[in-house]
């Protein structure tokens, strides 16, 4: 029964999210637009060279397919929801429920996030296929790449929780989200692989959680090697562990600020 309740939470929320099917397609339209800009940008940069940082144009675009699909995971919605529950005091109603608040949130979002990811990923693949053609993918790269994308969602979710929980202390947490978003942009390898960064930035970026969310799974997908796979899972799992501890500490400290009155 311990995990069974989370399975039912996930199932119900996935069924509810099917009502947002139009939203999925509009988001896919936006991803297609952004992919088209990125293809235009990289075509210009590849004008007089075949390889940049070890990537061909096609590999670069397929790398972006992965990072783009991960970036569109619905973090803002998760932050807004938890922040709203903290600010409105609704979180108090969750305290006497027979589940862990953060775990229940995770399972209520995972179905929606993965379904949305799959649709956006398909749209991005479609555009990459048309404009730069297929690339040679390693079957292990695809398989472990997908597992790694799932771990990216877990990591992104935990960071979203850290940001949202700050609502116990801050009136507005989206300032933190904006900064996180841009860190992901540069240090995460969203719009180009970390290999392009100058060394002084590249070395720290490789060890931060932002690259564990974007760079590692995307590179694993397009340029598989067993050593890189081991590194990817090591960084991802280590950061997941660190963030679980951080979220638990923040939540425990924050929840003490909730005062429940009768009525």
């Amino acid at each position: 029964m311990t995990l069974g309740k989370y399975y039912h939470i996930g199932k119900i929320n996935l069924q509810n999210s099917l009502a947002y099917i139009i939203d999925f397609f509009i988001s896919s339209g936006l991803v297609i637009m952004i992919m088209l800009i990125l293809i235009a940008l990289w075509r210009v940069l590849y004008q007089d060279r075949n390889i940049i940082a070890g990537f061909t144009l096609a590999q670069m675009i397929w790398y972006l397919v992965i990072t783009e699909s991960i970036v569109f995971m619905p973090l803002r919605g998760i932050i807004r929801e938890i922040e709203g529950e903290i600010k409105s005091g609704k979180i108090a109603y969750q305290l006497n429920k027979p589940y862990n608040y953060i775990a229940a949130k995770f399972f209520s979002k995972i179905g929606f996030a993965l379904l949305r990811w799959a649709i956006i990923f398909t749209a991005a693949v479609f555009i990459a296929w048309i404009f730069v053609g297929p690339i040679q993918l390693n079957i292990y790269g695809v398989f472990f790449g997908i597992i790694s994308i799932f771990l990216s969602f877990v990591l992104s979710f935990l960071i979203a929780c850290c940001i949202a929980i700050m609502a116990f202390w801050l009136e507005e947490v989206f300032g933190l989200y904006f900064m996180y978003d841009k860190m992901r942009f540069i240090l995460g390898g969203f719009l180009f692989p970390l290999d392009i960064l100058p060394l002084w930035l590249q070395i720290p970026a490789r060890y931060l959680p932002f690259s564990a969310i974007l760079y590692y799974p995307a590179k694993l997908f397009v340029d598989f090697s067993p050593e890189f796979m081991a590194k990817t899972f090591f960084f991802q799992l280590s950061w997941i562990l660190v963030l679980i501890i951080l979220v638990s500490i923040l939540y425990r400290i924050g929840i003490k600020k909730v005062s429940i009155n009768g009525g």
């Binding site: 940069l45 300032g175 904006f178 900064m179 978003d181 841009k182 860190m183 540069i186 960064l197 100058p198």
Partner: peptide, 17 residues
Amino acid sequence: TSMILNNVFLLLFWWIL
């Protein structure tokens, strides 16, 4: 301040490119 920092990061990204 967060928004200013956010824009500084964006500028840094393009400076790198």
